[in-house]
Design a protein around this nucleic acid. Structure first.
Lengths: 205, 205
DNA sequence: CCATTACGCTACGGGTCGTAGCGAAAGCTC
DNA sequence: GAGCTTTCGCTACGACCCGTAGCGTAATGG
């Protein structure tokens, strides 16, 4: 996270319980108040810590919410469901379930918006949230290539570009469906999406 | 926009020039300051109007930015380029060019984030921004069906679902590429994306 | 026991918010 | 032009949140 305890060994250690309490309080405040009305003073009160303690660990609202939201994505997994289509449907449904939670809705888009003017924040989001999702895409793709469902790409640069493309299409579609269109990415939608992704528009009814 | 002059005909009319100046000042402030540091007092000063004038027309920052950003999407068009693939590439490049502008980056995601807790704001975004994009998708699809490039869907409900799906995939992918991955949706990317969208993952190298 | 760091608490200047109140300006109707 | 109505610019205000400084205390390790 944000912990920096590399060389310093002396002195009173930071309370790990306080970290957990603050992040939980942040998610609670996101649900009740939303991003714009969330204040660090309120979060500190909810967590039972002093405001100064909070400022010693996080630079501001942006960094705090990134860490609080990032924990929601810990549960993402990619079990082998036997086929590429089933793998995609499974992971997309998991992703959609996380995005449907109010603390994710309120917080994620807000910090992404802020990250357009803050490179350090963008990198923090990439490392703690996006990177994990990306790994799943690459793993699912490699699995499908072993099954023979997807052609293998010899050129590494080309492989990276294709991986990035797939990731933006999958994540972008789910995010847009959930947050912009405001409709649930339920099983029916995910089936239709997977069909289009695999077979293309022309093949889908 | 927000003008309400249905029954009231008497008294001093609202200055249309002030509206334009305020919206332009809002975009200017979005570029220079970004969403979070943009204040209504500053916008009023930039526009050369009193802060109270601004509050008479817009309920708050959210509504103001929605209207300011919405004007950016006025230029979206869908000229007939002869094939579905060419039509998609053309409109996606236009969309990407708008999203690449700093006033769109900073503002759009922020108001979408706020809209997760404000239904009126969500509807405002839908009506003034999303609706226009959706129209292009439907028009391009109808055109492709006339050309025989896409199968026609007799069931109206199914047609709506498919239209919504295509829209979320296209818009979501471009938005995610631009704002989350932070990479440009340039011609090369758009070509690859169009290929995947039309032919599916299996057919793309 | 002592150095070091974290903690809780209080207090503060600075900034923004959104509104109220005022006189002046700009239209329309007669 | 007289009179009515609404908008406009301006000033001022209490309320809130920010981020930090200072202090005494608590919890470690040497």
């Amino acid at each position: 996270m944000q912990s920096r305890t590399p060389a310093s060994r002396t002195g009173r250690p930071r309370s790990a319980a306080a970290d957990a309490a603050i992040l939980a309080a942040t998610r609670e405040a996101l649900v009740e108040l939303g991003w714009s009305k969330l204040t660090l003073g309120d979060v500190a009160t909810r967590a039972g810590v002093a405001k100064t303690t909070l400022y010693r660990r996080w630079a501001g609202k942006n960094e705090l919410v990134v860490d609080a939201v990032a924990e929601l994505f810990d549960e993402l997994e990619l079990p082998d469901r036997g086929s590429l289509a089933a793998d995609i449907e499974g992971v997309v449904l998991q992703f959609a379930a996380i995005l449907a939670r109010p603390e994710a809705k309120s917080g994620l888009m807000a910090v992404v918006a802020e990250s357009t003017r803050d490179d350090a924040l963008r990198e923090r989001i990439r490392a703690s949230i996006v990177e994990r999702q990306m790994r799943l895409v690459l793993e699912g793709r490699a699995r499908a290539q072993r099954r023979g469902e997807l052609p293998s790409v010899p050129d590494p640069a080309e492989a990276t570009r294709t991986g990035d493309l797939i990731f933006d299409v999958v994540a972008g579609a789910v995010v847009h469906r959930t947050l912009v269109s405001g409709k649930p990415a339920d099983e029916e939608w995910v089936r239709s999406f997977t069909r289009v992704l695999l077979l293309g528009l022309a093949s889908s009814a």
